[in-house]
Design a protein around this nucleic acid. Structure first.
Lengths: 340, 340
DNA sequence: CGCCGTTTTGCAAGCGTGTGCAAAAGTTTC
DNA sequence: GAAACTTTTGCACACGCTTGCAAAACGGCG
């Protein structure tokens, strides 16, 4: 009761065996007789012994730690991803360290440095882009790196991306089927490769049908930005009748602005498509037609890559490109509008 | 370039000093001459050396690890809390481990066991209730425990709670001022002490004015539950004109149900108050009047308690009880309704 | 009982770090 | 220049664990 952790030595002493025996008892697949194992277990139970993973990680090459580096993690999409990742990592016997990179400027680099401090087996980056040098350092230290939706050109990390261009194309088709003619694209000023890919894809697909796209970029990928974009978009002379928002949150802001400030009805006067399919999209007030982030697939791929001890160096492996299906709800007309 | 972490020995060799010198260079407050410090730093830089926190944690009693144990962490309130906690912990030089307790049954206990494995300095519990025995074990191992909004009667952990009862009383007053007469309370079946405290407080305060409260409990504290409660509440003979929802998410479900399925106008026909003040409450579609979780205060108190190395055993310290102010938006009438 | 093959067990060397202690080096004072 | 301090440095042990290795124990067989 002296306020300190109990060690394997204590257990060994109590069970009347050597320290090796207790170590082997807690090492799956080690050679211990059933009798001693029982003895050790009983002693461990009584003392409240727990293997010290720090010390274990010192001997083995693996620490069992996986770092998740993420900023603005209360964003619904990110929060959901973190939840799913931690859950599956735990099932795989790993523990997750969460590194918050909310402070800008070199924060991702600092985060990766932290992962080195704790000898993490792997790092999963959900946001930000790491410096090349520090990435190299991690990789050289034997750490694995997974980049999710950060379409980076660094070689070495395992990259998981979406078919953003294809999704944008699907959005155009959906709008055309609904009889929309004036397309707009609501983007942020963040300029992440995947966001820009959606923009380019949308414009290109529209061009194939001879349609121009009004592009507005504003602030961060948040509700307020959508709200502001609604202001600029619907006060223009020829207002769009279809908007593809780079993100569900922006879509909500845009919808609220369109309805509240301009009295537009959705989908009768305006069709909206979002991206992420976060929980709120299904709420009755929005009923947003949106592309679904294949969270489970993303997680599955990440874990598989981490688990596969003898996998190729990632430079050989092409990025995984996952499909984001369109989830139909009520923010896009299913059929062409009849002009009455 | 042999895929492994570089150790202090490597640095020492390269800098032509002893390993102790390296260790001292990276230990704030240790005695090293400026010259050797420079030499060591240069060598460390060149090799990409990083102190191994696992090994350091083995020597010192502190690992620098703080565990956050939380379930359903993609819930907006929880996600925000986790974000704020990780941010402040990092500022305090700690690193956070995230333990997901989504699987029910004994999962919190398993989580605490994990914290022991990694010799965490402290654990912060945002959800679930730990077993008493395992809590004791953590405390005896010298670990600190913080319980946030889990109004538990275990002695030892540091407890942070809200003045739920008082908030409920404020809600009743708000409704009365708006001229509401038929009060209802929308709860979940979760039965957490703090949720029940809100329920009891609401009923008691209403009783003081001779008013009865219709209580409905349903499912989890999520949107769908609110939706369902709207169904049962507004099909009743004398429908309520004011509902206090235990949670913002449920409030949104209730509002959507009231508006969409029953054509009720808010706040003209129905006043609603929520709890948490999550981001969505400020969205135009909802404009929910709600009690604000003092996230910053919660975080500040937690960190202060962890940082204070020589603090009293928590059994001496009474739970901190924080105030949750009511944030006025549009879901409650400011003045009494004029019956026309 | 002796021989041989198979477990089981303890020893001891490591993993990468911090730190007390005494020796070495440097600084001040007389 | 020696004595008395102060600062810096290296040694060696400790932290709690894993694991290769060889000795010990065990079991079967002739």
């Amino acid at each position: 009761m002296n306020k300190s952790f109990v060690s394997a030595d204590d257990v060994a002493k109590r069970a009347g065996v050597s320290r090796s025996a207790v170590s082997r008892t807690f090492t799956p697949g080690a050679s211990v007789s059933e009798e001693t194992r029982q003895r050790v277990m009983k002693a461990a139970q009584a003392l409240g012994y727990h293997v010290n993973q720090l010390a274990r990680g010192l001997m083995r090459s693996e620490s069992g730690i996986v770092c998740l580096v993420v900023s603005e993690m209360d964003t619904p999409y990110r929060a959901g991803l973190v939840r799913a990742l931690t859950h599956e990592l735990q099932k795989a016997g790993k523990i997750s360290m969460l590194i918050n990179t909310d402070r800008s400027d070199g924060s991702v680099d600092a985060a990766l440095r932290q992962t080195l401090h704790y000898r993490a087996d792997a790092s999963i980056l959900l946001s930000g882009l790491p410096d090349k040098a520090i990435t190299r350092l991690c990789l050289d230290s034997g750490q694995r790196i997974v980049l999710i939706n950060r379409d980076d050109d660094i070689e070495g990390p395992f990259r998981i991306n979406l078919d953003d261009g294809h999704a944008a194309r699907v959005a155009v088709h959906a709008f055309l089927r609904a009889g929309c003619r004036y397309l707009a694209f609501a983007n942020s000023e963040v300029g992440t490769p995947s966001l820009m890919a959606r923009e380019r894809g949308f414009i290109a697909a529209a061009a194939e049908f001879g349609l121009a796209v009004t592009v507005v970029r504003c602030g961060n990928t948040v509700y307020e930005s959508g709200r502001k974009i609604a202001q600029t978009l619907f006060t223009e002379p020829n207002r769009p009748d279809a908007v593809f928002c780079v993100n569900d949150l922006m879509a909500f802001g845009l919808m609220d602005g369109a309805r509240h400030d301009f009295g537009l009805r959705i989908p009768q006067d305006l069709c909206v498509v979002g991206f992420d399919d976060i929980e709120q999209s299904a709420w009755t007030s929005y009923g947003l037609t949106t592309f679904s982030q294949p969270v489970d697939e993303i997680v599955k791929n990440s874990i598989a890559w981490l688990g596969d001890r003898e996998a190729e160096p990632a430079s050989e492996v092409p990025p995984v490109r996952l499909h984001a299906p369109l989830i139909w709800r009520q923010s896009v007309r299913a059929t062409q509008r009849v002009i009455s």
